[in-house]
Design a protein around this nucleic acid. Structure first.
Lengths: 349, 349
DNA sequence: CCCGCATCTGACAACGTTGTCCAGGCTCTA
DNA sequence: TAGAGCCTGGACAACGTTGTCAGATGCGGG
């Protein structure tokens, strides 16, 4: 015997000590295998007396049904996958929670992972979830090509994209009105007398960033204000870059009197920069921020409803699973301008 | 035939259209089942030519290994469960993400769910995860009796509790130093001249809330300050209750000159109350808050490292799985006092 | 030319559950 | 009391994979 028993056990992977199975319960209760299955699943056709005997055996052995085997047999896992960008981002917390609540209402569990804005990692995660045979997938895309999901979708995995559209495939999408929200936010600044307005956003390859920039341009166009290149800055949202970008806009030959920020992380950094800045500068940010109302001045924002995004997407997912849905659809949720002071400051020049 | 084919398919749950299996791949490649398995798993002993044929068949059919079946056979799921209180709470985001990163490093996926601070839901969730045969469980307890997990732990499910200790069972626990942190925070207020200090915390049945209250009392005791009942308020952390509690403390016969808040949600509400309050009141809060530095004054906090809690717990979990751990242990992580202004205000009476 | 050995391949059982189907026992009625 | 019909219980196969083991193939040496 080349292996100790212990090592052998580790190799064959029989990790679960020796968990009792239905067979064990059946033996102990003196009934057939299928009868135990019936009791466990609350199926009819078992006399109270037999049921009691089986239940006693279950309790005595500490039996718990092995859902892996169940899944294999039934073909449905009662679980859905959520691929998002970063669980730790306060924007995705409520979204994630909303998806979870809908899943729970349908008796499903939620498996989730962060792509860290890396398309390759997104794909890896999504495919791992498919290999687990999740019933459905909610994806916040990091990449812009999702053809890798085509065979999965064809094989029956319900799929909904949120926050950003799918790339190069036809699928359900739930989005905020990024274009309209940004446009209205910038128009708000223009209405308060600003003309030199800066825009700081995320990398342009990210759909939401591009849309919000488009909204900014549209509002400026509509007001007949020519946009200078120095007023726009797109790129990574790390504090260093954003800080530099803001400082440059504020100090150039034609410094901006207002800034529109493209997402919550940018907004937070710009607030810091403005707090150190001598001149008063107006600010409107995309995404709401906790405590935004308590700052001096309060931060005016274009708020999206993250929970509604998640809820809508998950509900659509389960409707796909019910088979009542036919054509992929694009659903756009409105945003809401919340005025708190920073967006109503007059131009100071 | 009593059912239409379609309905029958729904009933038997053959959801996955007809996904190709290894058998299909084998047939198409003209090889044996096991050979396909070998190729898929990168096992040695397959000639390059055979491997190529198999690979072609895999690509042609769009085959993807069914991990449910694999799990059933191998006994390990390469997934761990995380039961937390609320995914949407900004405190749990980073914790969750940290657990995920460790899981990822070990090739495992993360399944998570929120207990909503409901012991019954915690149990339901934890047991559902065990039925899925997760390899391990990270639990942020809502309840105080975890004997229901005993059979699972005995059966080999690695288990670590975080943020709060397990109830009535012996298990690994990773905590912040709630007692010491609160004590130091209150001592900080005392050092700045306060004597009438209020404490607003979560429900006393929650371990962290009780520990932080204990820290408050210890600091007051150490300074020889008798605590009045009206200075302490424990209960749900909804804004209405907290608001009322704060207002009462500030307006009684001996109003407090400083408040220590028991967690992030309480702190946020109290900041709002103080912003409306005429007299200047000092504040130290447990848990850090985004933008706390930008408020006027900045909010002094006792910060815990949520990511470190998650990371430590998850690492311990995987060490349990490796079998290198023997005795359950209690790990306590230090907290850090961050002074920003609100905790250094002098008493105004 | 045949044997032995190494290498590659495939048949088969098993994982734990659920769906199908049939057997046996019971009750009720004619 | 016999037959019909219902109710309960159990034997068996199947889900898709992996571990075991034995068979097939090819090569080199005696």
């Amino acid at each position: 015997m080349p292996e100790t028993p212990r090592r052998a056990a580790a190799l064959t992977g029989s990790r679960y000590g020796n968990r009792p199975t239905m067979k064990d319960v059946a033996a102990r209760a003196g009934v057939g295998l299928k009868t135990v299955s019936r009791v466990v699943n609350g199926e009819p056709g078992v006399t109270p007396d037999t049921e009691r005997r089986v239940q006693e055996a279950i309790d005595a052995l500490g039996f718990r049904r092995n859902d892996s085997a169940r899944v294999l047999r039934k073909g449905r896992t009662a679980s859905i996958g959520l691929v998002l960008e970063d669980l730790a981002d306060p924007f995705y917390g409520p979204l994630s929670r909303a998806v979870e609540e809908v899943a729970r209402a349908h008796g499903a569990l939620l498996i989730n992972g962060s792509s860290a804005e890396d398309p390759e990692r997104e794909q890896e995660l999504a495919l791992a979830l498919c290999a687990r045979r999740v019933d459905g997938l909610v994806v916040i895309p990091a990449g812009d090509d999702h053809r890798y999901l085509e065979p999965e979708i064809k094989a029956g995995v319900a799929t909904v994209f949120v926050d950003r559209p799918a790339g190069r495939i036809d699928a359900d999408v739930v989005l905020s009105d990024n274009y309209g929200g940004a446009r209205d936010g910038v128009a708000h600044l223009i209405a308060h007398g600003h003309r030199r307005i800066g825009f700081i956003g995320d990398m342009p390859r990210i759909h939401t960033a591009a849309e919000r920039l488009r909204g900014y341009r549209a509002a400026m166009d509509a007001a007949g204000i020519p946009v200078e290149d120095a007023w726009m800055s797109l790129g990574a949202t790390d504090p260093e870059r954003v800080r530099r970008a803001a400082q440059e806009m504020l100090s150039g030959p034609s410094p901006v009197t207002a800034i529109f920020t493209g997402n919550n992380r940018v907004t937070v950094t710009v607030i810091r920069v403005l707090a150190e800045h001598s001149r008063s500068v107006a600010l409107v940010g995309f995404d709401d921020i906790e405590l935004a109302d308590l700052l001096q001045p309060g931060v005016t924002v274009v708020a999206q409803d993250a929970a509604a995004l998640g809820r809508t997407a998950a509900e659509r997912l389960f409707r796909q699973l019910e088979g009542t849905l036919v054509m992929p659809e694009r659903i756009e949720l409105p945003t809401r301008l919340i005025t708190r002071g920073s967006g109503e400051l007059p131009p100071a020049d």
